[in-house]
Simulated scan of single mutants.
Amino acid sequence: MTTTNKVHKENILIGLEAKNKTEVIEEMAAVLYQNGYISDLATFINDVFIREEHMTTGIGKGLAIPHGKSDAVVHSTVAVARLGNKVEWQSLDEQPVEFVFLLAIKNQDKNGEHLRILAELSEKMMDDDFVTQIKQAKDQEMLYQALI
């Protein structure tokens, strides 16, 4: 999977507590900022929310893939969060979200890399076995192993 080299253990969160989609994105972006993947937290968050305004990123099955292509991204990556409680996301299946995959993509990335990563993640999430595997992951290491 192309996303294999974009998922880093330090960007996987288990039990993220948030009341809503805004808090989820802000908390995940803060981790990316702390880990050096983005240089400007406010700019990146704004870019993610601009994308959210166009169409929901809640794809169903309790999964969401928000993403931001931004000048604030230093290194393209994917942050992953298993939420401590489900959050309303205006998902396509109208169900709350429990797993969030936040894509942080450099504006300078060429050849539609963000579209390839998004397509690969979306394809994996259509696989019921993959979804079951990530939902059964009990800790950061198990989730990381399921993703790579």
Rank of each mutant, 00 (worst) to 15 (best):
M1C: 08
T4A: 13
N5Q: 07
K6V: 02
V7Q: 00
K9V: 12
K9H: 14
E10T: 13
N11K: 06
I12S: 09
I12R: 04
L13D: 06
G15Q: 00
L16P: 10
E17K: 15
A18S: 14
K19G: 15
V24I: 15
I25T: 08
I25P: 06
E26W: 05
E26F: 06
E27W: 03
M28V: 08
M28K: 04
M28N: 03
M28C: 10
A29L: 07
L32I: 09
Y33W: 10
N35R: 15
I38C: 11
S39R: 11
L41P: 05
A42L: 11
D47M: 14
D47F: 12
V48P: 04
F49G: 02
I50Q: 13
I50V: 15
I50R: 10
E52T: 08
H54R: 06
M55R: 12
T56W: 01
T57Y: 08
I59C: 09
G60L: 04
K61V: 01
K61Y: 12
L63P: 10
L63R: 04
P66N: 09
G68S: 11
S70I: 12
D71T: 14
A72W: 08
V74F: 00
V74E: 11
V74Y: 00
H75R: 14
H75P: 00
V78S: 05
A81S: 14
A81T: 05
R82L: 04
G84E: 02
V87G: 08
S91M: 07
D93L: 13
Q95F: 06
P96D: 13
E98R: 11
V100A: 07
L102F: 06
I105C: 14
I105D: 11
N111K: 12
N111T: 09
N111M: 11
H114R: 10
L115M: 15
L115T: 06
A119I: 05
E120W: 00
L121A: 02
E123I: 00
K124E: 01
K124D: 05
M126L: 14
D127P: 03
D128V: 10
D128T: 03
D129F: 02
V131F: 03
K138V: 07
K138D: 08
K138Q: 15
E141M: 04
M142K: 12
M142E: 15
Y144V: 10
Y144G: 06
A146V: 08
A146I: 05
